[in-house]
Every structure is written in structure tokens, then in C-alpha cells.
Design a protein around this nucleic acid. Structure first.
Lengths: 342, 342
DNA sequence: TTTAGCACTCAAACACGTCGAGTGCTAATA
DNA sequence: TATTAGCACTCGACGTGTTTGAGTGCTAAA
């Protein structure tokens, strides 16, 4: 339905808009495309594109900005993910390629690097942790009054917490508690573990190691942390760059929301395998109506999928973002495959 | 030099100013003090106070706001720290009284609670870590390719890090490395440790456990973390409430600075034992010229002093802040005394 | 089908007028 | 001598023009 020239104009308009953030007029397009036509001709085409709903004016005599439909069309049909420069590629594989890290470190550094490369806000979520199984539990006496609890899951996450205990806890109580946990909890999913921690375990501890009940609460908190799915978010301050006139109230709500892992998971939960872009109004969250969210998934070996996302302005450089995101997706999947293979 | 009535007026003006944040006029003062005088009389007194430099106008016909000298005088001579309500006291001792926590947890939760109670931004710094001595080092093999390094200092901090290692590291190499560390580093201050980690240790590891060099870098990073003095900051978003028209650029610099532990230490480094208030211009930092910083110290048993600080608007409720801060200072000192006694 | 030309529109920037909260000053008062 | 009522004055906030410039749609000629 759109003529070739209209496509070129739409493409140019969106490219210009995403790089400057401003509405684009007919002259600007004339000076930035190979089209051999006057601004008047381009005005006619713009008018047509507007009638079709791809672009819109911010006021009656303004230049055009892409409409939601326009961005949508651009992303679905016109945009080509931009190749990532070799030096950036090198940095990415340097950072993600090192194997000395834990899962959490990898995700954290991915978020950092991604936000740095895009100058937007990066979100990295680990795979849902509910189905993890507990594979190891140990208590380690560090000194007279500190012990460390370490729990491991089959997905390779290792969580630990150090806490103080009253002197009254004996070495043998430690062993008893460890045995109770190993006997009753190892092999279970973390959901089952959480349930048993509420129901059965307190009784057992009371029975076999009566002095250890104080310790129990602390141990419980370690499990809680490991059940909580991990979220890493980086470049939050970049929001200040691309939404310059947001009032402080909104800003506060927004930042509060971004710190809440539940909200983040809600945001990207229905994400399918491939790239998904939600533009402005499409995002199911009041505070994000003026942003765009580009998400994709990565594989955590055979253990499920994690999510990588970039939050930026609706007039985001989609082509670059897609390019970078694709590199991360592949590199993360590769890194994690090796991680679990070894 | 100031008459009794002038003192009452100055006191009222500052109280009104700190609770509303606005300039205060003669009528407002008339309606909010026991002074039996007309607004005209109060105007004369205000004029006098202005001549003396305690208050100032924002423009030629505006109400008055306290000047730096006014705030200073108020804090030094007029203000009485406000008693903290019993329910708040209870919350504080509940949170800080529990002994199951580590140092870092205690500081972290103090910051959280302090920012919540004041609605400003709370900063809690641990004592300088440079003089800590290493008291314990161990390597713990968690499974085939994860080991955990744990280091302890004489100040009770315990730091750990889990990292992956290539399979090639044998149990005996682990023991060798542990021995090298224990033999050469335990008992030294963390500064000395850092130096030796650069100079001597790599050679020793190469000599006695040649396969373990890869592991070395990771271990080094654990030490780095433990040397870094701890800083905990909470309620950063509250800044958005009390500086409503700051542009996004400044806001970004400010937040970046608050995340930098070096900057924070520089800010409060010369803090003496007692309460110190720095008002606006008095703060030695460009970004904080429109804020006030109230700081005090707490004792970490015999191991040095930490700093607690509240960052708020210059028109902060100083009396409340002092009250709350004093409770924290005492409670923290008490908690940490017990912490190290047990 | 394209385009030059023109009338039109609107946001942004600036100037101007009004309102009200607040001031300083003065002359009368206690 | 200290207080105060009264009044002229100041200035920010706010609302209302005005001007400017970038951009538009429309039309008539090429």
C-alpha cells in the first residue's frame, strides 16, 4: 500500500527522529535522503503517511513524529539490526567470557555493560528460581560466634549468609541441624523447601537440637534469598538523560518500581523467545507510557530462560539496541552453556 | 546583643521555615508566637535581625529565610534536640538490638531505618578498614568447580566470594594456597596484605602451586572488597522530595557522587566526635550547596569510630534530626559493644 | 506528477498588566 | 520611648498579548 518513496520517507523520518528526538519536517527529510523531490512533494507524502496513521503532528503546524503504528511498522519491516563494532564485541566477550564468576556476577556485569553500551537502562533477569532443586546445604563454623550457611541448587546458584549465634550452640547441634536439613530438604524444589521450612523443620529442630531454634530464623532467610529470582538492573540514572522533563514525583515512583523485582518480572513475564518490543502505550504500566522496552531471552543451558531487556525512550535507536542485544543474547547463552558443561 | 524578643522571633522564623520550606513574613510570625505585638513591630525586629545578618530576603518584598549565620546561631544556641517518640524508639531498638546479624547488616539496616524516620537521606559509614588485621583465611571447596574464599579480620568483618575454577586445580593445591596465605598474610594489616598480594604472593603461588595462579586473581578481589571501607546509604530517592526543581543533569551528578564511597568519606572525613552540622555553603562540595549535612560518630567497641549522617534540605527539621541521630548513635554504640564482647 | 509560492498555524520567547503577599517608612498614639 | 495603623512601594507569579520562525496545506502553473 505504501509506495517505495513513502517507505524511504518513513524510514528516514524515524531514523532522524530517533537520533535527534525531535519532530521532523519536510525540509529536513529532503536534505537527508537521496530522494530527488522538493519539500512540497515530501509534504504531500507526509500528509499521506499521516492519513494512513504512521506519523502524527505534535501540533497543527509542527513536524511529524512516528506514531505507535509507525514505530511498529518500522521495527517489523524497515529496521535492520545494526552490526556491533568489533571493539565493542571484544569488550563483551572479554567481560562475559571469563569463567571465574558466579551466575549472579555474570548477570550483574551483563547489565552493567549493556547499559553502558546503549546508554539506556538495562535489565537482566535470571530464570525463574521456583523449580530449582536444593542440592547442598552446609553450616560452617567460622569462629566462636559466627556461622555461615551455604546452600546450593541444581542450577548452579550458591547463596550464603553469615550470622551470629549465641555461644550456647554447640558443634554437635550444628551437625544435627545440618543433618536435618540435608535429610529432609536436599533434593526438593525450593518451593517445597519453603513449605517444609514453615511446617516440619521447626518441630524437628526443637526435638533434636533444642538450642538451635534461634539459628533457624537466620537460616530461613538464606533460603528466602535464594528463592527470590535474581534481577539486575543497571544504568538507572540514564533515565534522567532521556526523559528530561519528568517531574520528581513521577521519577520517584518510577525508580521505586525499578527497584522492585516483582514489578520487573510482571513487566516481561509473557516474553516469548525472540525479540519483543513494546512501544510507549503498549507497555502495560502507567509509568512507562513514554518509554520503550526491548526484550529478548537467553538460555541458561537446559535450565530455563532468562530475560535481557533495554528500557529507553520511545525514540530509541532501535537498530543499535537490537544489534547489541542480539550479541548479548548469544554470548550469554554461550557462556552459560559452557558454565554448566564443565 | 539580640533581645529576648528577637530571639523568640528568630526561633519562630526558623521553626516555621524548616517546617514549611517557605520564606516567612511578619504576619505569619505574629500568628504563631506568644508575642503580643503587631506585625509592624515584628517587621521592625525582622529588619534588625536582617541588619545583623541572621535572616535574609529572597527578593525585595519577600518574607525572610534564615541566612547561613541564622541557621548556625539557631543550631548552636536555640535548638533543642527533640525527644524521639516511644514507638519510634521501640522500632529502633528492635531492629538494632537483634544480634543475629553481621556488622554490615547492622549498618545497612541503620541507614534504612534512619532514612525512613527522617525522610531524608541517611549515610552510615563503618570505621576505616585500613588498620584491620587479617585473622583468618580459608578456601572451601563447594563442588567440583566452585570454591569459596573466606577472609576474616580482627574487627569482626567477614567477607566471602564464590568463584569458579578450572578442574585442573587439585585439592592439594587448595591446601597449598591456603597455607601460603595463612603463613604470609594472617596477622598483617590489610594494607600490608594488599602490598604483599602485589609483590610476594604471586611468586610463592607460582613456586608451590603453579596451577593455582588463575585462582589468584579471584582471591585478590575478595581482599579488595574487604579493604574497601563500607558505606551504606539509604533514602536516596528522598532527595527528589526536598529538592523539587533540580535539573536532571545536576541530579545525575549528585546521585553518581552518592554512589561513590570515596566521595562520601571525603565529605565526612574530618568529622569530630560530637554532632557536626554543615549548612549549605559550608559543605565542601559543589553539588551539595543547597543541602545540609548532620553528622555524628558512633563507637565500634574499641576498634574505632563510624559515622552516621543525614543529608537533607538546608531548611531541615534540625531538632528532630538531632534527636533521632542521637538515639541511633547511642544504640549503635551499645549494640556494637555487645557485638564485640560476646 | 511535481513544484513554487503563499496564506495559515502554533510553540517559544518575550513584553506587559494585574494581583497579592510582603516590605519600609511615617505620623499618631500609649 | 516603644508601638502601631496606614500607606506607598516592590516583586514574583500568573495570565494575556505580540512577534518570530519553523512548519504546514492548498493552489495554480510547469
Amino acid at each position: 500500500m505504501l509506495t517505495k518513496r513513502q517507505l524511504i520517507i518513513l524510514d528516514a523520518l524515524i531514523r532522524l527522529n530517533t537520533s535527534t528526538g525531535n519532530p521532523i519536517g519536510s525540509k529536513t527529510i529532503m536534505n537527508n535522503t537521496a530522494i530527488k523531490a522538493s519539500s512540497a512533494t515530501i509534504r504531500n507524502e507526509l500528509s499521506e503517511l499521516e492519513k494512513e496513521g504512521f506519523i502524527q503532528k505534535t501540533h497543527s503546524s509542527s513536524g511529524r513524529i512516528p506514531s505507535l503504528k509507525g514505530y511498529r511498522f518500522y521495527i517489523d519491516h524497515l529496521m535492520r539490526p545494526q552490526a556491533v563494532a568489533q571493539d565493542k564485541m571484544n569488550i563483551i566477550s572479554d567481560v562475559l567470557g571469563t569463567h571465574v564468576k558466579q551466575m549472579d556476577d555474570i548477570m550483574h556485569q551483563s547489565a552493567q555493560l549493556l547499559s553502558e553500551l546503549t546508554q539506556y537502562t538495562a535489565i537482566v533477569l535470571g530464570p525463574r528460581a521456583e523449580t530449582s532443586r536444593l542440592t547442598g546445604f552446609r553450616l560452617l563454623s567460622l569462629n566462636d560466634n559466627h556461622i555461615m550457611a551455604i546452600i546450593q541448587t541444581d542450577k548452579g546458584t550458591i547463596e550464603n549468609k553469615v550470622f551470629r549465634v549465641p555461644k550456647t550452640i554447640s558443634e554437635s547441634d550444628l551437625v544435627k541441624v545440618t543433618n536435618i536439613f540435608n535429610h529432609h530438604l536436599v533434593g526438593q524444589t525450593l518451593i517445597e523447601v519453603a513449605q517444609k521450612l514453615q511446617r516440619d523443620i521447626p518441630l524437628l529442630i526443637k526435638k533434636y537440637a533444642s538450642n538451635a531454634t534461634e539459628m533457624f530464623l537466620s537460616i530461613e532467610s538464606v533460603f528466602k534469598e535464594s528463592t527470590e529470582s535474581r534481577h539486575h538492573i543497571s544504568g538507572k540514572l540514564n533515565i534522567l538523560d532521556f526523559s528530561e522533563n519528568m517531574d520528581t514525583k513521577k521519577l520517584k515512583s518510577l525508580y521505586t518500581m525499578l527497584d522492585n523485582s516483582g514489578d520487573l518480572y510482571a513487566l516481561v513475564d509473557q516474553i516469548s523467545d525472540d525479540f519483543v518490543v513494546k512501544i510507549g502505550e503498549e507497555i502495560d504500566h502507567d509509568l512507562l507510557k513514554e518509554f520503550s522496552l526491548v526484550t529478548t531471552t537467553y538460555n541458561v543451558s537446559n535450565y530455563g530462560k532468562g530475560v535481557i531487556a533495554v528500557l529507553g525512550p520511545t525514540s530509541m535507536a532501535y537498530d543499535e539496541t537490537f544489534g547489541v542485544l542480539d550479541v548479548f543474547r548469544k554470548q550469554l547463552t554461550r557462556t552459560l552453556l559452557e558454565y554448566y558443561l564443565e
